[in-house]
Design a protein around this nucleic acid. Structure first.
Length: 572
RNA sequence: UGGGAUGUCGCCAAGUUGGUAAGGCACCAGAUUUUGAUUCUGGUAUCCGUUGGUUCGAGUCCAGCCUUCCCAGCCA
C-alpha cells in the first residue's frame, strides 16, 4: 500500500476495511496462534484473460485492504494455468489497474512459475495412490460423473497400478498423446454429494503457446489443483475468494492436505459485487469489445477500471465505494447511486469549478458597451478557498444554457424568461427584454437582454433579489469543445434479465452515449490536460478525455450534479 | 428431487456470550446558499423470510417450512 493511501486513512485503519466476518476469522486464527509469525498473507489472483472491472476492485480492496489492516502482505498473482485464453496485454493492464487503484503488491508471481512443483506434487499423489491417469473422453467422464441427485460411477482406469500411472503421466508430459486423449484425475469419491469431489480432473493435455512458458509444457494443471498449491508455495495464510468457490473448499483442502507441503492456508469466501445496470462477466465484456458495441476496454461506459478511469472516476472514490458496500456472504445488487455519491463526494472538494455551456443560446446585452471586456476574478472552488481565483472575461455577447431559458415557464421555474431578471454568476443581473426567433421555424435564435451596471459583482445595491443564477461564457472568448454524456450501458438493472430467446445484448441502451459537438467553454480550459477533472458549474463533473488536444477539446461527463429541479420540472 | 450457501428499512449493511433494531446510499420536510450543487437540521423498520417452540425476555437458541443464489468445464 502506498504512503499516500496510508496517510489518507491515518488513525482510522479500522475504517479502511470496516470489520466483517473475514476479519473475525482472521482474528480467531491470530488469537489461536495458527498464523506463522502472526503475519497475515493474502493474494489477489486474477487470470490474465481480460481487463479488471469494478467487481475486481472490490476483491482487490478486500485482499490488499485486509493485509494492510493486519500489517501483513498481499501478493499479486497471475493465475495463468489456461494459456488458451490468456495474454500479456491483460497482465500489463492488470498491473496498471492495481497500481492505479493505489495498491502495492509485496510479491508479483505467476502460477506458471510453479508448474514444476505442481508436476512433482502430482507424482507424489500418484505414488500415494491418490491420482490416476484416465483415458475416458470428456463425454464419458461427464456420463460417469452422475448428476446432482445420482452418484457417479468409478471408471475402469481408476485402478491402474501406480507404475502404470507414473509412466502414463510422464508420457502425457512428454507430449506422447494428442490433446484430450488422457487426463490426470484425483482419486477421491465418485459418490460424494459434492460433485467437485467426484474424481476431479487435475491435469489436461493442451497444446497452446503460453505467454510465459512458451511451448515448454503441453499439460496444464486445473484451477482446483493449482490454486491450493500456489497459495501454499507463497505461504498465503488466508485465501479470499468469491462465493461460487465454497463448494470447492473441500477439494482445496484435500489438495493442500495431500501434497506434503507445510503451509496451511484457509480459504474464505465472500459475495462478489453486482452493480445495477452493469455487466460483470469478463467473457461478456470481451464480447462487447470484440463486437464493437463499445470503443474498447476503456470505453467510458465500461465498468472496467480503465473505463472508469477514462470516465473521470478517481481511485479514491472507487476505494471509498468498495468500503461502503461492505463485505458479506449475501448475494446483492448495489445501486448505481452509491457509486455516483462516492465520486461526487470526492470531486466536490477537489475539482475546480469552471463555466461551460453545453447547449448554447446566444444572449446579447443591448445596453452593454460594444467593445468592452471585463475580466472578473472568480473563485476556483468555494469548498477549497486555498485553490485561489482566476480571471474570466465578460462581454456584450454571451452564451447561456438553452435549458436556462423558457418562453412560457411553469410555476417553479426561476431561471430566465421574458421580462424576468436573473444573475449571471459573478457578474451582473440581466433581464430578458425580447426574443429573436427564426421566422420560418419559430425556433429561438437569441435573446436580447439588458443589464444593471449597479449589480456588478452579482448583487444589487437596492437589495433587489433574483432567484436564479446562471453560468455563461463570453462569445468572443469561448472555446469550442466536444462533450460526451454517458448513460447506463444497459437498460435493465440486471442485464441478464431478458425475454425468451434473447440475450443480454438485447438490453444494451441505445442512448448510452450522447455527443455534443458545439459546447462553449471558458478560455482557461483550452489548456486543460487529458485526465484533468472539473466541475462544470451547475452541470456536473467532467474529465478531459485521453484523446483530447488543445485544438480539439474533448470532455467526458463523469457524473451529473444532483438535480432537484429535474425532479420538480417533471412534476410541473 | 442431492450438496453447499443466503434471507435485518427502497438498495447495501452492523447487530461478540439472548435483554428490547448502528451506519451509509436513496427518499421526504425545513434552514443556509451568487452552483435548484455543497453544507446543516429533522423524519423515515414496534420490527428482523415464515410458522411454531424454549425463556421473565429472541433478530440473536431449537424445529419445520419457504425465498434466492452456486455446483453435473479436460474454464477460473
Amino acid at each position: 500500500m502506498s504512503d499516500e493511501i496510508k496517510n489518507s486513512c491515518e488513525n482510522k485503519d479500522e475504517e479502511f476495511v470496516s470489520s466483517n466476518f473475514i476479519n473475525d476469522f482472521i482474528e480467531e486464527d491470530l488469537a489461536s496462534g495458527k498464523v506463522p509469525n502472526n503475519t497475515i498473507i493474502t493474494r489477489f489472483p486474477p487470470e490474465p484473460n481480460g481487463y479488471l472491472h469494478i467487481g475486481h476492485a472490490k476483491a482487490i480492496c478486500i485482499d490488499f485492504g485486509t493485509a494492510l489492516k493486519y500489517g501483513g502482505k498481499c501478493n499479486l498473482r497471475f493465475d495463468d494455468t489456461n494459456p488458451s485464453k490468456e495474454d500479456v496485454e491483460y497482465v500489463e493492464s492488470i498491473k496498471e489497474d492495481v497500481k492505479w487503484l493505489g495498491f502495492k503488491w509485496d510479491g508479483l508471481f505467476y502460477a506458471s512459475e510453479y508448474f514444476e512443483i505442481m508436476y512433482d506434487s502430482a507424482i507424489k499423489l500418484i505414488k500415494k495412490g491418490l491420482a490416476f491417469v484416465c483415458d475416458l473422453t470428456a463425454d464419458e467422464i461427464r456420463e460417469h460423473r452422475g448428476t446432482l441427485t445420482e452418484p457417479g460411477k468409478n471408471c475402469a482406469y481408476r485402478d491402474r497400478s501406480i507404475e502404470e500411472n507414473l509412466d502414463l503421466f510422464e508420457k502425457m508430459k512428454n507430449g506422447e498423446f494428442p490433446d484430450g486423449l488422457k487426463v490426470l484425475r484425483a482419486k477421491i469419491d465418485m459418490s460424494s454429494p459434492n460433485i467437485n469431489m467426484r474424481d476431479p480432473v487435475i491435469y489436461r493435455i493442451l497444446r497452446a503457446n503460453h505467454h510465459r512458458t512458451g511451448d515448454k509444457w503441453c499439460i496444464y494443471p486445473m484451477y482446483d489443483y493449482a490454486h491450493p498449491i500456489e497459495d501454499v508455495v507463497e505461504g498465503i495464510t488466508h485465501s479470499l475468494c468469491s462465493l461460487e468457490f465454497e463448494d470447492h473448499r473441500p477439494l482445496y483442502d484435500w489438495v493442500k492436505d495431500n501434497i506434503d507441503l507445510p503451509a496451511k492456508p484457509r480459504q474464505i469466501e465472500f459475495a462478489r459485487l453486482n452493480l445495477a445496470y452493469t455487466q460483470m462477466s469478463k467473457r461478456k465484456l470481451l464480447q462487447l469489445v470484440n463486437e464493437k458495441f463499445v470503443s474498447g476496454w476503456d470505453d467510458p461506459r465500461m465498468p472496467t477500471i480503465s473505463g472508469l478511469r477514462r470516465r473521470g472516476f478517481t481511485s479514491a472514490s472507487i476505494r471509498d465505494f468498495c468500503e461502503k458496500i461492505g463485505v458479506a456472504k449475501n448475494n446483492s445488487t448495489v445501486e448505481y447511486a452509491l457509486l455516483e455519491h462516492c465520486i461526487r463526494n470526492d470531486l466536490n472538494t477537489s475539482a475546480s469549478r469552471v463555466m461551460a455551456v453545453l447547449k448554447p443560446l446566444k444572449v446579447v446585452i443591448e445596453n452593454y458597451p460594444k467593445d468592452q471586456v471585463e475580466w472578473f476574478d472568480v473563485e476556483n472552488n468555494p469548498e477549497n478557498p486555498e485553490t485561489g481565483t482566476r480571471k474570466v472575461p465578460f462581454s456584450r455577447e454571451i452564451y447561456i444554457e438553452q435549458d436556462d431559458f423558457m418562453e412560457n415557464p411553469p410555476n417553479k421555474f426561476f431561471r430566465l424568461a421574458p421580462g424576468r431578471e436573473v444573475r449571471l454568476k459573478n457578474t451582473y443581473f440581466i433581464k430578458c427584454e425580447s426574443i429573436v426567433a427564426d421566422a420560418a421555424t419559430g425556433q429561438i435564435i437569441e435573446l436580447r437582454c439588458s443589464y444593471d451596471p449597479a449589480s456588478r459583482g452579482g448583487n444589487s445595491p437596492d437589495g433587489r433579489k433574483v432567484k436564479g443564477t446562471l453560468h455563461w461564457v463570453s462569445v468572443q472568448h469561448a472555446v469550442k469543445a466536444k462533450v460526451c454524456i454517458y448513460d447506463h450501458l444497459f437498460t435493465k438493472i440486471d442485464p441478464e434479465d431478458v425475454e425468451e430467446g434473447k440475450d443480454y445484448i438485447s438490453n444494451l441502451n441505445p442512448n448510452s452515449l450522447e455527443i455534443l459537438q458545439n459546447c462553449m467553454v471558458e478560455p482557461d480550459l483550452a489548456n486543460a490536460k487529458p485526465g484533468e477533472r472539473f466541475q462544470f458549474l451547475r452541470m456536473g463533473y467532467y474529465c478531459v478525455d485521453i484523446t483530447s488536444s488543445p485544438d480539439k477539446l474533448i470532455f467526458n461527463r463523469t457524473v451529473g450534479l444532483k438535480d432537484t429541479w429535474a425532479k420538480v420540472s417533471t412534476k410541473c
